[in-house]
Amino acid sequence: MNEDVLPGVGRLKTGGWLHYLANPARFLRVATPALPWLAAVSLLLCVVGIVWGYAIAPADWEQGDAARIMYVHVPAAWVAMAGYAALAVVSLLSIVWRHPLADIAAEEIGPVGAGFTAVCLVSGSLWGKPMWGAYWVWDARLTSVLILFFLYLGHVALIRAFDNKAHGYRAAAILALAGAVNLPIIVFSVQWWNTLHQGNTISISGGSKIYITMLYPLLISTLGFYLAFITMVVARVSAAIYERKTASALLAVAER
């Protein structure tokens, strides 16, 4: 079997929608009509969540107004981690199945994820100063998120570092997969070790510790941040596909 033939073009029976979307043309057919809607809904949810958190949600009993930083810090942190998980998934698709779209996605997820991680770090630092009394401490949670940021930056640099694009994709995919061990470390750091950062307020296994009037804006702005991430990545992946098409069209013209 020739692996250099575009894989994922109707030939793979397993894997579902990830394989289905792995064809760039098919991705564009789905993404192009979806993009305006994605952009509109994410903009709406971000605006509602941010305004609600900034001005309408009640002040916290312990932290007062400073707890409002939660409504941008926590969604940014969740998106930063989910973005890295997505990076690991597309890297796996790239290494194992050699989907061409997976490489493009990896290249475009990196900078966006790094941006959300930076927002998480900066907003957290601005939260730490008035509450803890320090902008930064080297506890396990903060350090592991800083490592996540550097993993993103390393990936962004590595995937663009090679003259031969395929080498960059391979190396960056290995980095992304290896770095994925950091994700459970971030999540459980506050349970495994004594940290200055507080424990998880909302856990998947139930047992949240947040009042409903503060939970709603948090969920809305989380959904908004997630959709904003997806919108940016889909727009950038689409743009990258067009750029490649342009390059091959110009090459065809030059060879004519």
């Binding site: 009993w61 009394g133 307020t201």
Partner: peptide, 18 residues
């Protein structure tokens, strides 16, 4: 030399706490 405050992970309005 330095004292940092560690706050909890519970968020609720003041009146709910009361």
């Amino acid at each position: 030399d330095e004292v940092l405050a560690k706050h909890g992970a519970a968020y609720m309005p003041k009146d709910v706490e009361q």
